[in-house]
């Protein structure tokens, strides 16, 4: 599970794509997302996926995107089976199944290459309330801390004789209770301390807080954004007017 979920977590990267303005990356991913919805045949879908694979390779995140694909393949298999059962149409079923993978990949590319700092910036751009943005920021910030907490608690409980890997499913789930309770208690204590520290550093003092970082679109960002729009228009045009479609 840990290996598979790696497909959505940001890690530092230095490719040209990583360094793009988050807005350009968001626009590009959004357009790729819509393109997957426009594709009406397997051939078109293959084109879209091939483009995303090429882009991932250029952004040096192909391995992690492959993980995302492997992860979503499980669900897409399910979609395929259900579609075959209900529509009895193999081609449409394959199309839907690959479309699901393609949709997830298009968003995954954005999340893999966009740092939490940039995500915060994007959320602010959408004028989400400061509290909501800050809740998101702290949630992401404390993921590694909570993971470390969990490992420590598991070790502590194991050393006191808790056997996590034993018994049937019900028993295993019940075994998680001694892990979860200290974890929740820890988090509650932690949130109290965070609240104090926020107060001590004037959280909410100014009606309009400022930001240390400034995102100013450079030429390359505008170039990439324009290229995405042109490619999108091309794809949409050719899907509907150039590539013949034989729907059954």
């Amino acid at each position: 599970m840990m290996w598979l979920s790696g497909g959505f977590i940001f890690r530092k990267g230095y490719s040209f794509y990583h360094r793009l303005d988050p807005r350009a990356k968001l626009l590009n991913s959004a357009l790729m997302f819509v393109t997957t919805l426009l594709a009406r045949s397997i051939f078109e879908m293959v084109l879209v996926v091939a483009f995303m694979v090429g882009l991932s390779a250029a952004a040096t995140v192909l391995k992690r995107v492959a993980r995302t694909m492997a992860f979503t393949a499980l669900f897409s298999g399910f979609i395929f089976v259900v579609n075959v059962l209900f529509t009895r149409d193999l081609e449409t079923s394959v199309l839907y199944a690959t479309r699901f993978v393609a949709i997830v990949v298009s968003t995954s590319i954005f999340f893999i290459t966009t740092s939490p700092d940039e995500l915060e910036q994007v959320m602010k751009m959408f004028r989400l309330p400061r509290d909501v943005v800050f809740a998101f920021v702290t949630a992401v910030r404390f993921i590694p801390v909570m993971m470390l907490d969990t490992i420590q608690i598991m070790d502590a409980q194991k050393s006191r004789g808790l056997e996590l890997e034993k018994g049937n499913l019900v028993r295993r789930v019940r075994n998680m209770i001694p892990i979860l309770i200290p974890l929740v208690v820890n988090s509650v204590v932690r949130s109290g301390e965070l609240a104090e520290a926020m107060e001590a550093r004037a959280y909410g003092a100014a009606p309009k807080p400022t930001s240390l970082l400034e995102y100013r679109a450079r030429r390359v960002d505008i170039g990439v954004a324009c290229a995405s729009v042109v490619l999108f228009a091309l794809a949409a045009y050719s899907f509907y007017f150039v590539i013949p479609v034989q729907f059954p």
């Binding site: 800050f134 920021v137 910030r141 001590a200 003092a205 009606p207 400022t210 930001s211 240390l212």
Partner: peptide, 27 residues
């Protein structure tokens, strides 16, 4: 105020952003 546990008073993803946190709040 420097609290006992430094972990719980660092909010941001990078050091410089966190140092700026109080100043951002003050505008």
């Amino acid at each position: 105020f420097l609290f006992q546990n430094p972990e719980n008073q660092i909010f941001m993803f990078t050091v410089e952003r966190d140092v700026a946190f109080g100043l951002e709040n003050l505008g």
